[in-house]
Structure formats: structure tokens, C-alpha cells
Amino acid sequence: MHREDGSRRRPSLSLPILRTSRNQHRNGKLTLGNLLTELGETSFGWAIVVFSLLTLLPLPPGSSLITALPLLVTTGQIILGFPHVRLPGPLARLKLDPVKLRRTVLRLRPVTRRLERVLTPRYTLLFARRNERFLGVLLFVIAFALFLPVPFSGWFPAVSLFIFGVGLVERDGLVSMIGLAFGGASVLLTLTIMMSLARGAEAMMH
């Protein structure tokens, strides 16, 4: 959706998440499963957006071992050809902190504002069914890099998955490809840090 005569602006990407989480919190129903269902009928696009936000919440170091699990489950289901996301019961019932979720969404406003300016349906062949499993493998690798408790690297794969998910929701193949490229760079960064840590540990042992 583009601006028309300067009077119409594209709806904010943050608004559905903020509005839905606020309403569910008021009703005492703010769980991961409820939020996802109301946002997008358990579509993979919204699932990747929401789950990548979870990994960016202000949590103790090493929390990505837990927060990245929904992304591993989701991307694994894409590889297996599931028609929609099926969250295991414990993940679906996971309660969310509305204040932390709001803060995280607002922290990403510099990213979402830029995306809002350029998003439009294009290169939709990227999302064709024949490409789904291949995309699932790429996304699983990025999610696994996020899952690893590697210092200073978690933010990058999380943001790349967020960008891909937004592109999928809006059927913008170009934005999703940018997310994948950023994700590939984040995987390389994670590998580089791991190799540096391994060399450092080896040097200390000798």
C-alpha cells in the first residue's frame, strides 16, 4: 500500500502487535499462542515476526537457548511442509510480559519505519510452494545461529529473521531476500566468533 496524494500512509507494522498484546493483557489472555492466533491465524510470517521479537526481549544472557526454540520449531515445520504453525502446548501457553514486549517493539522502530517506506508485494515467486522447504532450511540455519549462546551475535540473526518475517507477511520478496542476506552474514559472524573463542580457549590450555 503506497501513499496517495500524500494523505494516506501505510499502517504501522508495530500497531497490530501492540494493539493485540494490550487487549489480551487486559483480558488476562496474553500468551504466545493467543497472540499468534489473533495476529495471523498461525501463519508462518507472523510467527517468525513474533518469535524473533521474543529473542530481543531484555532477558539474562543465555536466554536465547529458550527464546529461540519457537523459531527452531517454526522453521523446522516449514522444512517438513506443514501448512501452518503448530505450537507445542507448553510454548503456546507461555505467558508474555506486555511491558517488555512493548519496549522491544519500540526499540525496533528504526527498522520498521524503514521497512514501512518500501514494503510492497513483489518478487512473490520467492514464496512459491516449491521454494518453501529450501527457505525453511535457510531460516533454520539462521535460527540455530541465534539459538547458540555466542556472545555479541544474537541480535543480528534475530533482526534478520524479523525482516524476513515482515517480508513474508507483506508478500515482499525483495525485503525477505534482504533478511536472508543479513541472516547469512549473521551466521558467518557467529561462526567467526565461535572460532575465535575456540582458538582463545586452546591458547589458554597450552
Rank of each mutant, 00 (worst) to 15 (best):
H84D: 12
G40L: 07
L72Y: 02
E4I: 15
L32F: 04
N27M: 09
G40Q: 03
L71A: 03
G184L: 06
T192F: 08
L197P: 00
I17C: 00
L59C: 01
L96I: 12
L96E: 03
A203R: 15
P149S: 12
L32R: 02
V73L: 11
S63T: 05
L191A: 14
T192D: 10
A198S: 12
L57Y: 05
E132W: 12
L59V: 01
H2C: 06
D97G: 01
T20W: 10
G184V: 05
F162N: 07
M177I: 13
T112I: 09
R171E: 09
S52W: 03
L139R: 11
G28P: 11
L69Y: 02
S64I: 06
K100C: 08
I142T: 10
P110Q: 09
R86H: 10
L39A: 00
L119R: 09
T67P: 05
L71C: 00
G40I: 03
V111T: 11
L80S: 10
F134S: 14
A201G: 12
W46K: 03
V73Y: 01
L188C: 04
L30E: 04
V137A: 11
A145F: 00
S21Y: 04
N34L: 07
V118C: 08
L180R: 09
L106V: 12
P88T: 08
M195H: 10
T75N: 00
T42M: 15
D172M: 04
P98F: 05
P60F: 05
I66W: 07
F140N: 14
L32A: 00
F147K: 00
P98N: 07
L106N: 13
T67N: 07
L168A: 14
T190A: 06
H206V: 15
K100M: 15
A47L: 01
G165I: 01
V50P: 01
V49Y: 01
V105T: 02
G89Y: 03
I163R: 07
I48D: 08
R129F: 05
